[in-house]
Amino acid sequence: MAEAPMLRVENLNVLYGDFQILWDVSMTVGAKEVVAVLGPNGSGKSTVLKAIMGLTPVRSGKIIFEGEDLTKVPTHEMVARGISMVLERRRLFGAMTVRENILLGAYHRSVNKNTASRLEWVESLFPILAERRDQIAGRMSGGEQQMVAIARSLMSRPRLLLMDEPYLGLAPRIVSQIASIIQRINQEGISVVFNEQNVHLSFGVSHRGYLLESGRMMLTGTGEEMIHSDVIRRVYLGV
């Protein structure tokens, strides 16, 4: 890659108490790239995304986005920098309506101008949410909730979208819907990093992937390269 990557994560170490979750994790994400972070359960996939977003304290290492060091920037300032996130299991404001949830995505002062046009853009991606706008978010189905969560995260028009386990707990039909939404988002010029346990699901939409095992980065490459790698076989099949 000729130009500097959009996001650069360098030697990230994360501990929960005395237990080390991530060991010297490094990765990059380019502009308009879709990157999958894969790995078995408990490998630290979610922690990587949470650490980038500032939801998990980082012991050492650096997170550099568009040339700026974000390691010490608090979570609530991330949208102002152009990063947004879809949390694991949607995490909607369950007692609020669909419309309220989506509008909250443009809460931050840096992104609360032209709310109407942002809303129009987001609802063009998810027409069903315009119909359901007055429904209480907590009462929707899992797939619909995931759409609200993605719509909410897009309201800030991020340049980088982090998606923590976007397919988790969804029916196969919904999973392929979400996958095409990820592609659609990418076509809008947004970089996406998502994590997923299933190798084939991951490479359906991503340009590149990273493999995590027990908190260490084991491998990176394109989907094709990784699927045929021995490391993947060892990690997933124990061969």
Binding site: T75, H76, S84, L87, R91, F93, V111
Partner: peptide, 14 residues
């Protein structure tokens, strides 16, 4: 929003 989900609120900038 904060009372319903602190992390989700932080993510949207609260």
């Amino acid at each position: 929003a904060t009372s319903q989900d602190r992390d989700a609120a932080a993510v949207v900038g609260i």
